[in-house]
Design a protein around this nucleic acid. Structure first.
Lengths: 102, 102
DNA sequence: CGTGTAAGGAATTCTGACACG
DNA sequence: CGTGTAAGGAATTCTGACACG
């Protein structure tokens, strides 16, 4: 629960220092729905270590010429299969089906 | 090694949001040698989650009227006994003594 | 001793836009 | 499509100091 990895506390400047990505790129990848920083009360973006890891992956793929669309589709796939696995693990596949035909 | 807990990446404003402590207090506890934020290239302070935990402890003790001097002495003690335990665990007590009379 | 505050400057972040390819 | 950049404003952070108790 005290997952430091997921806590949104890092400003864009520090993310830039850590990843080497320009702030422009970082904001653009958000615009394309690849990352989801939180906002402080005053509106500045706040990222988690997890976001930073995601950005490194994105950067790698971009270098290989992969477009943001495709990166996003890939991420969705992984997210979905991860969720399926999760449901199986909990033995809640039934609940899942019940949800589809109530 | 990828210890997110120890990475100095959080600005003072976010530390304020997270702890409720005024920036003045946060800077003052640094001045008294209770915490050691890093600095970005441009000179802004950067804190770790670990620093934030320390600040919460400090805040608790200050509320009980404990002075920063004493808080510091306490921290030193704990740090020392922790280090001793560490050395014992590694079986390096000898090295420790060798260091005292070379 | 510990903390608030006003002061002035420097650095940060934000948005919307234009440019290029 | 992906990224750079100049623009102007708003918010952040820094230091050194004065105040109070």
């Amino acid at each position: 629960m005290t997952s430091y990895r997921e806590k949104k506390v890092i400003t864009i400047g520090v993310v830039h220092e850590l990843t080497g990505l320009s702030e422009r790129k970082i904001r653009y990848y958000e615009e394309r729905g690849l990352i989801f920083p939180a906002r402080s009360k005053k509106g500045t973006r706040k990222y988690s270590f997890s976001d930073i890891e995601a950005l490194m992956n994105i950067a790698d793929q971009r270098e290989e010429g992969v477009q943001t669309d495709e990166i996003k589709r890939d991420m969705m796939k992984k997210k979905n299969s991860k969720q399926i696995r999760e449901e199986l693990r909990r033995g809640q596949l039934n609940a899942h089906f019940n949800m589809r035909k109530p």
